[in-house]
Structures are given as C-alpha cells and as structure tokens.
Design a protein around this nucleic acid. Structure first.
Lengths: 100, 100
DNA sequence: CGGACTGTTGGATGTTCGTCATACCGTCAG
DNA sequence: CTGACGGTATGACGAACATCCAACAGTCCG
C-alpha cells in the first residue's frame, strides 16, 4: 500500500513534459550537470531548481555536489527494484527521437 | 514527439490515487461497471464521472453503454502498442498485495 | 405514465502546480 | 577581499485540478 503511495508520487513527478524529458535523458545512468547547458527548456533558472527538487523528493534522482557545480543522477537500481519496468516504459517511447 | 505529449497525458491521468487504482483493477482486461458497487473510494458520484472522463480522454479506457449501466474497459492493445511495458509497470507493483 | 436507477452536466470552491522575479548563499579565480 | 558563477529560497500569481452539490437525462419496471 505504501508502494501505491510512492508510485503515485513517482508518476506525479514524471507527469510533466520537462521532468519527463529530464528522466529520459538521465536514463543512461550517467550523472548530468544541472547547468543550463544541457537543459534548455526556455524556463527560468529557479523553475529548473523546482523541477529538480520534485524529482529528488519523489526518490527519482540523487544530487552530487562537486564544488559549485551540482550533478544529478537517476536512481536506476532503487527504481528498477521498486517499480520494475517503469523507467524502461518511460524511456522506450514508440517513435522517440533518439538524440537532440 | 507526439508520443511524448501523449505519454505525459497518460501519466498525468494515472498520477492520481483513485485513477491509478481504477487502472490497476481494469488491468485484467475485463470490463468493469461504473456502478458504485465496485468503486468505493468514498467520493461523490460525479467525482467518479470526472475521473472516468480523464481516463477516457487520455486514451486509457473505452466505455461500453448497455441500457442504463455503463461499463469501462482498459485499452490494453493500444496502450501496449504505444507504450510497451507501461501498464505492466503500473500493475506489477513491488509489494502489491497479490490479489483482493 | 410515473417512479426508481444510473450516470452526466454545470457551477462553485479550496487546493495544488508551474512559472517568474528577486534576493540570497557557497565556491572559485584574481 | 572582491567579484563572477552555479544553485537555492521565498513570495506572488494565474491556471489546472479534485471535490462536492444540485439539477438533469436516458432506461427499465410496475
């Protein structure tokens, strides 16, 4: 039952265009910087912080702080253990354009 | 790209405790009645209508009208085709109590 | 026909959410 | 130390959302 609650949290976190894209990009398992370089969604800096926070609080990502640059990484193992197949389903879009 | 848009719609539809439960229950492929008998969430009748509408408009379910009783059914084939593994991931919860 | 049953429609309401702008804080280079 | 850089915190605001209530509409039974 607690799993249902968590699942809803994860789904809510992922039910947003920007956050879904972030998760899809992070699905390669490697950490990505939070810097505006990679994430050009045309939204304000603090908005990205907001989205990163939602993802982190839903248990989807962890943040790695190195000096003044933060990196974000998907918690693949935990997620695959708790919600098997979920991340795959989110990333393996039907006609998902590979890169860019 | 259109798939991403649709995926977000599906996720948003499913990112609600009541609607997630509905989808999980419907996952057996059989049609279930909309009657209050099966769905006892303690919410108002019209609220259920609202949730059913969201699910239908997200392309998750179809409604079968028979006389004065409506039945609802999950669009398994379409969903498995467009978002392979998604429904499985939603229903195969980690410690989801086997049945009942 | 007239009423019970099943479900929908159309407000109304309080809450959550996404976004922005500004101010703030830690880190690194000179 | 001072200033630039990378992120965070806080507050505001409009849109979307979940919920309820009352009224309505189609179907079946007597």
């Amino acid at each position: 039952m607690a799993s249902d609650h968590d699942l809803v949290d994860v789904l809510r976190a992922v039910a947003d265009p920007i956050r879904l894209r972030i998760v899809q990009t992070l699905a390669d398992g490697r950490p990505h910087g939070k810097c505006g370089t990679h994430w050009d969604f045309g939204v304000h800096k603090s908005t990205m912080t907001h989205h990163f926070r939602i993802l982190r609080e839903a248990g989807l990502t962890r943040t790695i702080v190195t000096g003044r640059s933060h990196s974000i990484q998907l918690c693949r193992e935990e997620l695959d253990a708790r919600f098997p197949g979920l991340i795959d389903a989110l990333t393996a879009g039907p006609d998902r354009e590979t890169h860019r």
